[in-house]
Nucleic acid binder design. Structure first.
Length: 531
DNA sequence: GCGATCAGGT
DNA sequence: CACACCTGATCGC
């Protein structure tokens, strides 16, 4: 992740989520969301200086991201250079070479990612693009488990309190709002100010420590907790010792052939882990790709044991030439190209769990299968309020109901005859050779940043069967649990735009791949000249 | 004093 | 294992 250099092959003058080094020369900037590791260089003096001398360079992001960014005074100088974009509304952006005056137009469509407030897709998050991470329980299910645990605890007495061991970052808001509603309480946090531009969340957090649900932090909070203290130091007014449990949001995942198990794991006498994920599961990413049917996919991360140059070379070989596939093969052929990976480890555990927040490899004894089946995974009727994630004052209510972060992103550019239109990693050191069409048909799982466990899982994109999602993937069992699949792709549209259908997208990609010029009509869609 | 970078931690 | 931080030491300006 940190290996992402900030640019995409197709748009070498655009930088996203990295703002240092070569990115200082960009003609336009994008920020996908407000997490610090995606903001490297964003407050740098060099960039600040560049802005002062530039007439055209801007930072594009969602309205929410803009607000969150400007919340921090260190980024205040960006104010006049940020252009917030509406979600799901194709928007034309000019890329200007200020030295020569040359101008190029691109079209960008922000789609909500569900990762944290304001987050949008522009490249695909491949964190869990590995079949071991086949499924992650839905947020509804996770929330239900957490609610139940908290309810059982804090109902015992007013001295029973809960510490949510969350990172000081955006992305936990739906926990706060839903728990706040359920238990009629506010959540104690260190900095409610970070939500001051999100009034619908602000009302759920407080600096008042007299609450039974805390998500506060202290540099030594783990130590505090071991000594039965909350990070904020709060005690009961009458001196009665508090009864504290900690709940650490962590990602739990389940392999393809494993049964789901608890979303709550007890890890110590007063410690729990609760399933929680910022990221899409393997099956969700897979479905996303099947839906989009991109012509090319390139990794944006360097797997362990590979160099950036190697990966970029490998990227050339995973090039998928749909047109070539149509012409050269009668039935779809699955050709596996064993590229990034060398050994395959099968996932036999019932679950894996990783600490989304803190990576400490468990200080306490894991009680693997949890304690019985008290957590039932039914679809909760109180779904997370996703609109809380995606609205700022300025926004309409056109965004809602993302459960996991699988939506399409179609950023297109006219011309550029590279034959490659799906954004990919770009870096100066290693330009890819132009003869990409040499290889065909198969897209290996080279997206993965988990280095060496997915050789046997090859994604094949069939050019001629746009609607047979599951056909596109090898070796799926009959009883494939598609729990989070289809609904994730019901992207609500703005009144002016309609969601593209897979076959529309495929046709578009084919044209893009062949270098055809595309024209934009009325800002509400992308069409080909001869449509 | 500021920043960038790294090591180390949760 | 990877995410999203934080702190502290060191170095260069």
């Amino acid at each position: 992740m940190s290996s992402f250099a900030g640019r995409m092959r197709e748009y070498p003058t655009v930088s996203l989520d990295r703002f240092d080094r070569e990115n200082l020369h960009a003609q336009a900037y994008f920020l996908s969301h407000c997490h610090k590791d995606h903001m490297k260089g964003l407050k740098g003096p060099l960039l600040k200086r560049k802005l002062q001398f530039s007439r055209t360079v801007r930072l594009y992001c969602s309205f929410v991201t803009k607000e969150l960014l400007l919340n921090n005074p260190k980024y205040a100088f960006w104010e006049e250079y940020i252009v917030p974009l509406e979600l799901e509304s194709p928007t034309q952006i000019s890329l200007v070479d200020e030295a020569s005056g040359e101008k190029e137009e691109i079209v960008v469509t922000l789609l909500p990612a569900g990762h944290c407030p304001g987050s949008v897709i522009i490249y695909l998050d491949s964190t869990f693009y590995d079949p071991r991470f086949y499924q992650i329980p839905s947020r509804e299910v996770c929330l239900k488990g957490i609610s139940e645990l908290i309810g059982n605890w804090i109902s015992q007495s007013s001295y029973h309190v809960v510490w949510l061991n969350c990172k000081a970052a955006y992305g936990y808001e739906y926990l706060f709002t839903n728990l706040g509603d359920e238990f009629g309480t506010q959540i104690h946090v260190n900095s409610p100010a970070m939500f001051k531009k999100m009034p619908e969340i602000l009302s759920y957090v407080t600096t008042d420590r007299r609450t039974q649900i805390h998500a506060c932090r202290h540099p030594k909070d783990e130590e505090f907790f071991q000594g039965n203290r909350l990070p904020c130091g709060c005690t009961a007014p009458d001196g009665t010792p508090l009864r504290i449990i900690s709940i650490k949001p962590s990602t739990m995942w389940f392999g393809e052939r494993t049964k789901k198990t608890n979303v709550i794991i007890k890890t110590g006498t007063s410690s729990y882990r609760a399933c929680f994920s910022f990221h899409s599961s393997y099956s969700e990413i897979k479905d996303f790709l099947s839906y989009l049917q991109p012509v090319n996919i390139f990794p944006s991360v360097v797997p362990i044991g590979r160099t950036l140059t190697e990966v970029t070379q490998i990227s050339a070989f995973v090039f998928l030439d749909l047109e070539a596939a149509v012409e050269r093969t009668a039935p779809p052929v699955a050709m596996s190209l064993p590229l990034l990976v060398s050994d395959t480890t099968s996932a036999t555990q019932n679950y894996f769990d990783c600490t989304e927040s803190n990576g400490e490899d468990d200080d306490e004894e894991e009680e693997e299968e949890g304690k019985g089946d008290q957590r039932k995974a039914e679809g909760g009727k109180d779904a997370p309020k996703w609109e809380d994630f995606f609205t700022a004052e300025q926004l309409s209510d056109s965004q809602n109901s993302q459960s996991h972060s699988c939506c399409s992103a179609a950023a297109t550019s006219p011309s550029r005859g590279t034959g490659s239109q799906t954004p990919d990693l770009f870096s100066d050191e290693d330009r890819t050779p132009e003869n990409l069409e040499t290889f065909s048909l198969t897209l290996s799982t080279s997206l993965s940043n988990h280095s060496s466990q997915n050789l046997d899982d090859t994604l094949i994109l069939h050019p001629q069967t746009p609607n047979t999602k599951t056909d596109a993937v090898q070796s799926e069992p009959e009883d494939l649990p598609m729990s989070q699949a289809s609904s994730d792709f019901d992207i609500p549209s703005t009144p002016e735009s309609k969601a593209p259908r897979p076959d529309d997208l495929r046709a578009l990609y084919m044209k893009l791949a062949s270098g055809e010029e595309l024209v934009i009509r009325g800002g509400s869609g992308i069409r080909n000249e001869d449509d």
